[in-house]
Amino acid sequence: MTNPYKSYLSIGEKLDKSKFILATFHLQSENQPPARNASASDAGGFDQTAGGVAAESSVGTWTDVSLQEKILWENLRGRVVELDEKASIIRIAYPLELFEPGNIPQFLSSIAGNVFGLSEVSALRLMDIELPEVYVRSFPGPFLGIDGIRKITGISDRPFLGSIIKPKLGLSAQEHIAASMEVYDSGIDLVKDDENLTSQTFNNFYTRVDEGTKRMKEAGYLKEGRQKIYAYNITASYEEMLKRAEYVVDRGGNCLMMDVLTAGFASVCGIRNRNFGKIIHAHRAMHAAFTRSKQYGISMLVIAKLARLAGVDSLHTGLLPAVFTRDTCLTW
């Protein structure tokens, strides 16, 4: 029996990119054992493993399935359209029909799901994705974007300057907002909660919002067209996030912060789809678990693209290397 994985190779196939999602992977397949009952010519190899990734992330499996009609397989199979064994790079084209519009969890379950557990794979990293316009338009995208943020702040000719209050945990709501006001008074444009400041006993979320919006209004920092930004971290269960988002809006706040990876892309889409009209700022806490290795995981570029689809207006990227490594600070 020949190995069916090689049937997913379509090197050089000409594609209508409006009908496919393209994914670029770093792939290593060292010491790969030959497939069971495979002939010598089919016993392992980089191209076979590349085909395995395409199969597992689309319509394939590890054995023949009698119910899988040829026409169905041909229309829906992932195709390895580029393969560079020396550079350990493959590019897979997925028919758009494989994906539910507006559903990031289903997207990730497909191209970044079981493939990382394939026995043939010794290293795999999803490096980039290319999405056709029809798929992109099935998502909400940012409500404001950079142009909208510049409009509400009145800043059009320079970068925004932001600050995070330290210590990140331990201050009361009053102490935290008092420090924020000093930062604003010094000329900073944005203050954000840190990723693990939500609603602890020492700093209740609702008290922090009350104190923050009150003090900012008194100082004139929420005037139309000249606003300072405060990003309140609403991360929690979805029901509680919705409650917190509505509270920020009711009190006149202008920014909802979410830990997008720990809260989940579906939660981000859910908040964005409520059309609150406020900035959604994304913190990428936990990203290095996926992005730090150059051999395994998912690149920050992919996460950033998905965050934009979900509706994020601004994304936390970190400073230049100081506490964190260069590659975990920057979005590539």
Rank of each mutant, 00 (worst) to 15 (best):
V268I: 15
N275Q: 04
L222Y: 14
P321A: 03
L261S: 10
T291G: 03
P321S: 04
D313P: 05
G297Y: 08
R251P: 00
Y221N: 04
L242H: 07
E240T: 14
Y247G: 00
Y221H: 08
T207P: 00
C255E: 04
K243L: 13
V312E: 00
G252E: 07
T317G: 03
V268Q: 13
D210T: 00
G277K: 02
T262F: 08
K305D: 01
I234E: 10
G270A: 11
V260N: 02
S237Y: 11
N273P: 09
V249A: 02
L222S: 12
L242V: 12
V249P: 01
R292H: 11
I234W: 11
N254V: 08
T213H: 01
V248M: 12
Q227W: 07
L222D: 11
Q227C: 14
R274S: 11
A266R: 08
Q227A: 11
G220V: 08
T207K: 09
V260I: 15
A266H: 14
T201I: 14
L261A: 10
D313G: 07
K228F: 11
D210V: 00
I279L: 12
E246Y: 01
V248E: 06
R208S: 05
F202K: 01
M258S: 12
R284M: 15
M216K: 05
F276Y: 15
R284C: 13
E246T: 05
A266I: 14
I271A: 09
A282N: 05
L242R: 06
V268N: 09
A245K: 01
A236K: 07
K217M: 00
L320D: 10
S237L: 12
M241V: 08
K214L: 13
A289C: 12
E218P: 04
R244K: 11
V268P: 14
Y206C: 00
K214Y: 15
L301I: 05
K217E: 02
Y247M: 00
